[in-house]
Design a protein around this nucleic acid. Sequence first.
DNA 1: CTGAAAGCGCTTACAG
DNA 2: CTGAAAGCGCTTACAG
Lengths: 361, 361
Amino acid sequence: MSKSASQKRPDRAPVPVIRSTAEFARYVGLARTTVSRVLNAQPGLRPKTIARVQQAMERTGFTPNAHALHLRGKRTATIGFCMENLLTPTAVLKVAGLQHRLRERGYASLIEILEPGGSRRVIRHFLSLRVDAVVFIGHFVEDEIALRIRELRTNATPHLVIDQIGISGADTVALDRSRGMRELVSHLLTLGHRTYGLLGITGPMRAVRDRLVGIEAALGSRGLTFAGATRSLDSLHARDNDFEYGRALARGFVEERDRPTAFVALNDEIAIGALQALQEAGVRVPQDVSVAGFNNQDICLMPTPRLTSVDQQIQQTVDTAANLLLAQIEGVASPSPLVHMIEPLLVARESTGPAPSRSRR
Amino acid sequence: MSKSASQKRPDRAPVPVIRSTAEFARYVGLARTTVSRVLNAQPGLRPKTIARVQQAMERTGFTPNAHALHLRGKRTATIGFCMENLLTPTAVLKVAGLQHRLRERGYASLIEILEPGGSRRVIRHFLSLRVDAVVFIGHFVEDEIALRIRELRTNATPHLVIDQIGISGADTVALDRSRGMRELVSHLLTLGHRTYGLLGITGPMRAVRDRLVGIEAALGSRGLTFAGATRSLDSLHARDNDFEYGRALARGFVEERDRPTAFVALNDEIAIGALQALQEAGVRVPQDVSVAGFNNQDICLMPTPRLTSVDQQIQQTVDTAANLLLAQIEGVASPSPLVHMIEPLLVARESTGPAPSRSRR
DNA sequence: CTGAAAGCGCTTACAG
DNA sequence: CTGAAAGCGCTTACAG
């Protein structure tokens, strides 16, 4: 294949594919040592020699083998990312942001998706490549990741967990979801809402449990109980497409007497689906009911009314993560692992408003 | 740092951080050769010896240095991805899909964002790491990428361009945007629309020009001219957030006499923004005007009415790309570069309907 | 500037 | 099973 590629430009002498400094030195007609000194910009070389080497580099496209350098101990300046998936927009924003910050410092990024049961292989691969650090972004099987963290510690390889709280022994950066829910529900309580429909906030995951804790705390501060003030129909519907899931959940509530006056969703997609279904059923938002999402993605601006949501403060997450990681890599990390909670920001828009007067009750 | 990590588990003997087979062999009390044979699952070893090595691997977390293997000629099984950004959902779907296909075949992924002027550094880094192939996804500065392709060819490194047509000398997979627009406009012509508002379809980029060609072809087949049947207000508004951009563009058209009856947008976000602004101004969709997007992202299902759009057929793009890439890597590639056009799929939904009767004219 | 040598971590072929 | 050796591609210290 290389031959056919060079044959395409018969206007020049054929350029050989060069794969080592030895070959390259022979090609330029210099000693390997000299070539190496030019490549590493060492002093005491004649400008003419430097130019000769550079021109040959240009012509042949020769690049020194990084593996030989890393064997000699040069650090790889590579970070391994373990992602839950690349389909969650907020997770992608986090890798993208972190990658950007690390790239400024000269680091490259290896990105792998971690399937359940597949983390061992991925981490061993990262370790065999001698990455400078490993970052986990997303929510994984807790026991499995805990084992991986142990391995990374045994290997003295810096590591960081983003999003998932509860992995012991690892520096962690995570959104304070409990606090986010508490602030959102407090906002709705202040608007007079006393009954809440929960949309998709179900399951045993820590990230869900934290939210329920936040909701309960907000309700409790006004003398309401979680059981008395909230309702959920999650188990009645399959969660496939979040938008359709939100529609289905909301439709379940529409016909109910004693319909909640406020709906709080797991994420923005579910909230927007619910909002649409409510509007289609003739329920006015926010006059009849209020609807709120979570994550504050761009799509919050799409519906009319625009969606109230809880912002993840991704930039702050990224900055915190980058600083922790660089501190670890540069060896100035704090001795014991720390959990850094990011404070979410409530963004109130037109989809939440005063509770309707209680004519129904 | 390694010390503090192992001190945390005083219940076991401290585990040293082992970085080479030599150290490891000393630790297990075997010869380097023997350890190596166990690691490579060679025959003729006593089960007891194998167990001894494996237990020590488990305990120490030792992983052979991949750089030493690659120095000896083992291929890296790594693909370098050059992305325009990680903020375009369709581009992320493509990397994610391609990564998945390649991972099944044992390849890891290095992902870099290419900033204008920064491609040389990134490609040299990929080459120095001896990646098995390089993939470009997105739209880049044409001359710059053309130079990079030349370098990759000189280096005999397989490479593939996804999305951007017109880079000579490279296998290319791209959506046939011209055809997509032709089909969309034909659909609208059949519905009786004779005047078109173009939303954000401006600029010198090939991807835009192709669309205009497609629009013109569709119009021409019904005896209409591009100049006569289309209007654009793009230059009057800054494109910041696509959703707001769409709103602004649509508002500009609302007050016009001779308002177009159909609107065709650069992407789904702009179309949805436009749709909202039209509805807020009391224009009914699709009774008064039709609106169509491009890309057929999930958000097309969010507005009421749901958005007609042109699907990128991402799965097909990914499959084609994976096959081309693997063929190149395995050396069975066709001798000359090929451009593979992916046929888009028109997805008609409720946002497009029959043109209103021409009472206004 | 050249040239020979050492060593990074690994596998492999060879003699014991 | 052990042990010594060669070689992958590189840099560096050294003598010329």
